[in-house]
């Protein structure tokens, strides 16, 4: 008894770890188990052997192309959100009057949710919406520009919901970089551009990679806006629509599970690539010294 206790203590195991049990059981039962259940289900199609559902997905262009459609939306949107956040967050560093108000305004779209954003975009960017009215009355265009029920509607929706997200993360990473480092660079003769490029950007890069990943995850799972402001049967038929239709329109749970698995794999591949690149970067302390 004593010996066992001594051995467990050596490995850092004691009764405090029991506190982890409910959460671990919970995640295993409601996340891991369904996930493997889904994988299992995806391997039992009515016909075509264990990989039948996957074969069907990759041979049917209508299904297969949803991958490129999704990536074609999610990658540019995530990239734009991150790249636009950097200069804006960089400008907004430090303390000044009205910063909280400005930040709150930038955060606001998070609360809109995809559905209101979709409704607003339909109203605002639609053929008779204010945006087209301004363009036409200022003489910039003759006919209304089509910005909804296609790729651009979904893209704008992803920017509106994703940008505040990216902005907040980038600003928090920026605020973690000791401003003394830039001052030190300045005393060594570095100009503003050099300070940013040689000091701030390298320290920020790992944070940017993480931000990109999180924004990408958000954009990759696009579903309601692709249906509502996009063209769900055509150019914005993203992979989650395919999964949803398989499950709830055709009641083909095998195919739906297969699509869900493919979706997870594609996402993990992208995340893996970005995080792999991130691992090559310096990821240590961003403080200027002790304390």
């Amino acid at each position: 008894m004593t010996a066992l206790r001594h051995r467990l203590a050596d490995r850092g195991i004691d009764r405090h770890l029991l506190l982890l049990l409910p959460a671990a059981v919970f995640v295993v039962v409601l996340f891991i188990y369904p996930f493997f259940y889904g994988i299992g289900l995806s391997l039992q199609p009515a016909e075509g052997g264990p990989l039948g559902a996957y074969r069907r997905f990759f041979t049917d262009a209508y299904l297969r192309d949803t991958i490129t459609t999704t990536l074609g939306l999610a990658l540019p949107a995530a990239l734009l959100n991150v790249l636009a956040s950097v200069p804006i967050a960089y400008r907004m560093r430090g303390r000044y009057r009205g910063k909280r108000v400005l930040t709150t305004l930038l955060v606001l779209p998070i609360t809109l949710g995809t559905v209101l954003t979709a409704q607003g975009l339909l109203n605002f960017l639609g053929p008779t919406g204010w945006f087209n009215r301004v363009l036409q009355s200022t003489g910039l265009t003759d006919a209304p520009v089509r910005l909804t029920n296609n790729y651009w509607g979904v893209f704008f929706s992803l920017v509106i919901t994703g940008f505040p997200f990216a902005f907040l993360l980038v600003s928090s990473y920026l605020s973690g970089i000791d401003p003394a480092l830039e001052r030190a660079a300045a005393t060594l003769g570095a100009g503003a551009v050099q300070r940013f490029r040689r000091v701030t950007l390298p320290l920020l890069a790992p944070g940017l990679a993480t931000t990109f990943c999180l924004t990408f995850v958000l954009a990759f799972s696009v579903f309601p806006s692709a249906v509502l402001v996009g063209d769900p049967a055509g150019e914005t038929r993203v992979i989650s629509i395919a999964a949803y239709e398989a499950a709830y329109v055709q009641y083909d749970y095998v195919l739906a599970s297969a699509i869900a698995v493919i979706m997870g794999v594609v996402e993990l591949v992208v995340l893996g690539l970005v995080l792999g690149w991130r691992a090559l970067l310096y990821t240590g302390s961003t403080a200027g010294g002790k304390g």
């Binding site: 001594h6 203590a9 050596d10």
Partner: peptide, 18 residues
């Protein structure tokens, strides 16, 4: 505060490390 991995502690004749 730290469990032992060897030995024992006694207060007079009572075992203390548990």
């Amino acid at each position: 505060l730290l469990p032992l991995t060897r030995g024992s502690i006694w207060r007079d004749d009572a075992r203390l490390d548990t």
